[in-house]
């Protein structure tokens, strides 16, 4: 046995241990993504087909249009412990139902004000327009959102905040 290999194996073991410990303690935010059938959901599929990896923190819920997302759904997600909510639809002007995304934008903006009053950070509710073919943007959005939420820590709405 030479010393070099031995020390390396010890270091590897230490590194693995550190990583395992970090995994236990590191906060993993939960993101609920409401994605429209025509653009954002398709973009998420394209991200898959193109194998653009992104953090597994996200859970997609497919809706026909962002215009069918009741603000109650978003509130429910936060109430149940989501750390972030993404509303993703077609670019303005590209809505399959003409104006659903414009209405969604108005509602999300109004809801943001309400959530702000309730003490929720602005970054936790995000609105994105993602083209049907833009898998890259979907993956990047999740990556970026997960990163920001990790820094923010658990949602203040969480019933039991583990610290």
């Amino acid at each position: 046995m030479n010393g070099f290999n031995l020390s390396r194996s010890i270091r590897t073991r230490q590194l693995l241990q550190v990583r395992r410990m970090r995994k236990i303690t590191e906060f993993e935010p939960r993101i609920i993504a409401f994605t429209c059938n025509w653009c954002a959901y398709s973009a998420a599929d394209i991200a898959g087909i193109s194998r653009f990896h992104y953090p597994a923190n996200v859970r997609n819920i497919k809706v026909m249009c962002t215009g069918m997302i009741d603000p109650g759904y978003i509130l429910r997600a936060f109430e149940r412990g989501a750390d972030g909510v993404l509303v993703a639809g077609c670019e303005i002007g590209d809505c399959h139902y003409i104006s659903g995304n414009i209405k969604a934008k108005e509602r999300v903006e109004r809801l943001k004000k309400l959530l702000h009053i309730l003490g929720l950070e602005d970054e936790r509710l995000r609105l994105e327009w993602i083209d049907a073919g833009d898998g890259r943007k979907f993956a990047d959005t999740i990556e970026n959102m997960a990163g920001k939420l990790k820094k923010l820590g658990p949602s203040p709405f969480k019933k039991e905040v583990k610290s």
Binding site: V63, R76, A77, R80, G81
Partner: peptide, 18 residues
């Protein structure tokens, strides 16, 4: 909306946040 009722979406929200 048939097939996309409040109960349906909310049931998904509940499972997926937890």
């Amino acid at each position: 909306i048939r097939h996309f009722t409040q109960e349906e979406i909310k049931s998904m929200v509940d499972v997926l946040t937890e």
